[in-house]
Amino acid sequence: MTLLELLGYFNYWVFAIVLSVGLYTVIAKVNLVKKLIGLSLFQSAVFLMYITMDKVEGGTAPIFQQGVENPVFSNPLPQVLILTAIVVGVSTLALGLAIVVRIRECYGTIEEHEILDAD
């Protein structure tokens, strides 16, 4: 595989890197808010993967227009799917932050090890 071919998968490289950075953040950080930031990154990477795969070179939005012969359309389905997944991600993040707020109220800290020590 030549360098150009490797670079051709630029979006997928970004997907893999962002995914790993997110997963690392979730595992390595002890601060609960930072963990959620990592989780959010991790999910965003997947959004990028879906958006990338629907791209057709020279493709436009799938709307029929007058005077355009043989139009090339990008696949709209992954975009719709990922719109749903983004909503799921936002709700998860909101719920996670709400839990962190409750943890702060009950424990007075959002550092994981201090919470473990408290019980």
């Binding site: 609960l32 989780l39 998860t92 996670g96 919470i115």
Partner: peptide
């Protein structure tokens, strides 16, 4: 103690779903 437990569940559950 349910709160840290559910936070862990949320993190691992979301990782699994993703």
């Amino acid at each position: 103690r349910a709160l840290p437990a559910v936070f862990k569940y949320l993190i691992m559950g979301t990782l699994g779903a993703t």
